[in-house]
Amino acid sequence: MSLIGRIWRGEEGLGLTFWGYGLGANLLFSMIMLMTLQLRLPIWAFSAVFLFRLVYMVFISVGIWRSAGRYTGNQAWAFLAKLMVIIGYINVFLSLGRGA
């Protein structure tokens, strides 16, 4: 079984999926995007990272949601993880509306 498949099906633990693959990867993408701007790389470089980040966001959101659905611990953590997925999408749509 591949790691990508396990994440997609929600078979990885909620903590690792949310904090590691979700938040950790998001911070990494943010740093890479900032570097492309600071280094004044061509716009296609920034755009490529941005588009990959969007695809990854969909992927990891599904993984987090499914992992939260399988979570057997305190259900408040599962609820909060799902809430953060929703807030993340609201933030993206609001950012697009502002043109940022």
Rank of each mutant, 00 (worst) to 15 (best):
I32P: 01
W44N: 05
F79A: 15
G24K: 11
L54V: 11
N74V: 00
M31R: 09
M33T: 04
G69V: 13
W65S: 00
L51K: 11
F93S: 04
G63C: 00
A76R: 12
I7N: 04
I86H: 12
M57H: 15
S95N: 06
P42I: 05
L94N: 04
M1F: 04
G22F: 07
L16W: 12
G22C: 03
I4S: 11
L28N: 06
S2Q: 03
F59M: 00
F79H: 14
E12Y: 06
L41G: 01
I4P: 02
T17N: 09
V62S: 05
G63V: 00
R70P: 08
I64H: 00
L28Q: 08
G63K: 05
L51A: 13
I60P: 00
A76T: 12
W65G: 05
F50V: 00
I87H: 03
R66E: 09
Y56V: 05
G15N: 14
F52T: 14
R70N: 15
F79K: 15
M57D: 03
V62T: 07
R6M: 08
P42S: 06
L39I: 03
G10V: 11
Y89K: 05
L28A: 15
F29Y: 13
F18N: 01
R98P: 01
F79Q: 14
S30R: 10
G13N: 15
M84C: 12
M57A: 12
A81D: 05
F29E: 06
L41V: 02
I43E: 01
R6T: 07
G97Q: 01
L28V: 15
F18I: 03
Y56S: 05
I32N: 05
I4M: 08
N26L: 13
W19N: 06
V58Y: 05
Y21H: 13
Y21L: 10
L51M: 14
I7M: 06
F59W: 10
G13R: 15
M57G: 15
K82N: 13
N74Q: 07
I43F: 08
I86E: 05
F46T: 01
S2H: 01
R70F: 13
S61E: 11
N26T: 13
Y71C: 02
L41A: 00
N74S: 03
Y56M: 03
L23C: 10
F59I: 06
F79T: 15
I4V: 11
Y89C: 05
T17G: 08
V58S: 08
G20M: 00
A25P: 02
R53T: 08
L39F: 10
L41K: 01
F52H: 03
M33V: 06
